[in-house]
Design a protein around this nucleic acid. Sequence first.
DNA 1: CGCAGTCTTGAAAGCTGTCAATGCAAGTGG
DNA 2: CCACTTGCATTGACAGCTTTCAAGACTGCG
Lengths: 191, 191
Amino acid sequence: MNRQEFMTESTPANLHFHVVSGGARLFKSLPDGRRQIIGFAHKGDVLPAYPCTHYHYSAEAMHTLRVMCVPTPYLRHLHETSPGACAASLNTARQLLVGLHNRLLMLGRQTARERLAAFLIAQGTRMGRGELWPVDPGISRADIADFLGLTTETVSRLLSAFHREKLISRQRRSIHILDLDRLRAIVAHSE
Amino acid sequence: MNRQEFMTESTPANLHFHVVSGGARLFKSLPDGRRQIIGFAHKGDVLPAYPCTHYHYSAEAMHTLRVMCVPTPYLRHLHETSPGACAASLNTARQLLVGLHNRLLMLGRQTARERLAAFLIAQGTRMGRGELWPVDPGISRADIADFLGLTTETVSRLLSAFHREKLISRQRRSIHILDLDRLRAIVAHSE
DNA sequence: CGCAGTCTTGAAAGCTGTCAATGCAAGTGG
DNA sequence: CCACTTGCATTGACAGCTTTCAAGACTGCG
């Protein structure tokens, strides 16, 4: 079920999806094929919702993926009757807003080098205190590029540069952070 | 009160703001001064909210501005007790999400020409059926640039190009759309 | 082993940014 | 009323970052 698109832009939004296991890419595309990845969804995530009758982005499975479908009317009913459920949804929506604001700054004002460093940090430190995780090998260069608004070539070149500078190590497709502090410095004041 | 910053990034978020009249710029900045405008807030808007204890962006008055301040705890209480109020907030949050998704695509994948055309269309057709409005003269070239992730020089050059191509007219600082269809074509498939 | 897809690397082109000068309009003070 | 200042906007020349185009290299797999 790799690469299977289960949710398409400008299609009637009858269902909400909860990710039960696996991962999904959320993206928007331009008519000529240029693609921007909005975000990734992992186990436990609810795909960010849409106020209107149509989806506003597409989603496809990354490798394996199991989702739970919730009819939109049911969710709406739940929100209108249970303040707790609605408040919870509002909270996740707000967290998404904060993340998107940061990405706006990143895409609009940071260099390729800064963006990639920020991405590696985000991937490497996700849901861990000081733990350093490798970047999910299911995420291809093309995914990174489409997430950061770059080309795969630029991503590849920068990864090679980071490797030369001993900031990261690469084995197979997975990337490990070697020097978190220096990566942080790159993001902060464009080393 | 022009340019007065009434809300600052990483400051304790004790108050929510409703815009009563006038306009505000919402933005984030990098330590070296690079700035990205998140959006503009006009009469009736509520400044997009923050799930944590700190604001995640700054806001400043554009010309004149009157805001109504609502204590955060009060709003939280309201949301927890009134499903209607919470659902309304959730709905505006979702509309913001859709807008931000589109801007992600714009900043990550569209050219300067396409971004400016999209901006002019958005400004020129806001809250009107077929009505064409001039771009708010209170929005400077620097604002447009910081909104689109460009420089003022690029914005200026492109506006001149659009003017030469008879897509827009300029008088003082306000811009009028002359050929909406052709602008739309620029956005859609990169003319 | 060979194929297909992905990743890496190089050279060149292009778009946008940087630096710098000029123009333009409004406001200030003599 | 007229220099003079100040803040934007416009324009040009040039540099630089990223993309584009193209060729190999690597990996997984039948």
